[in-house]
């Protein structure tokens, strides 16, 4: 039964590799704990045009009952996208990663949500409380109680 939900991740990985959505690709997935997924914003949004961003997914043993821990990570040549809901430490304020999570969601569907969140953005800025949040942020974004009040972006 350990296999139960590991199997699901196996399927998701096959799916991501065999039938990838446009602009979403697996950078690294050596185990069922941490995956790195690269995303590109496909429309010509000038803020993100031509850039690739890297999402880190961490899965607890309770996945998919519990949401995975998802954040952007910076790497050589890869930066954290500038967005009013994305902190400069990579933490993302998005309801599907917290209270809006449902076990029928997948890595691909989360990546697509984030992709469209970037695509729909026209404000080239960080969240207003970025500096304070980053200074005090818990290691895991799942330990932050985000307040999802701004649906305009």
């Amino acid at each position: 039964m350990i296999g139960g939900f590991t199997k699901r991740l196996g399927r998701e990985l096959n799916d991501l590799k065999n039938n990838p959505a446009v602009g979403i690709s697996v950078f690294q997935a050596n185990d069922f704990r941490i995956w790195l997924i690269d995303i590109k914003v496909m429309d010509d949004n000038p803020i993100y045009a031509g850039k690739t961003f890297r999402l880190q997914f961490r899965f607890a043993s309770s996945y998919p009952i519990e949401a995975p821990e998802v954040q952007f990570v910076a790497s050589y040549g890869i930066e954290i996208p500038v967005h009013p809901h994305i902190y400069s430490n990579g933490h993302i304020c998005l309801d599907v990663l917290g209270s809006g999570w449902s076990p029928v969601q997948t890595v691909a569907s989360v990546a697509m949500s984030i992709q469209s969140m970037l695509a729909g953005n026209d404000r080239n800025e960080r969240p207003p409380d970025d500096a304070r949040y980053v200074a005090h942020a818990p290691i895991s974004p799942k330990n932050t109680r985000f307040v999802y009040h701004d649906d305009t972006v």
Binding site: H85, P127, R145, F146
Partner: peptide, 16 residues
């Protein structure tokens, strides 16, 4: 700083 806590996110500082 405590007085002006209001914004995008509420923080749980115990982890921090």
């Amino acid at each position: 700083a405590k007085a002006e806590v209001e914004g995008e996110a509420e923080l749980e500082s115990d982890k921090a």
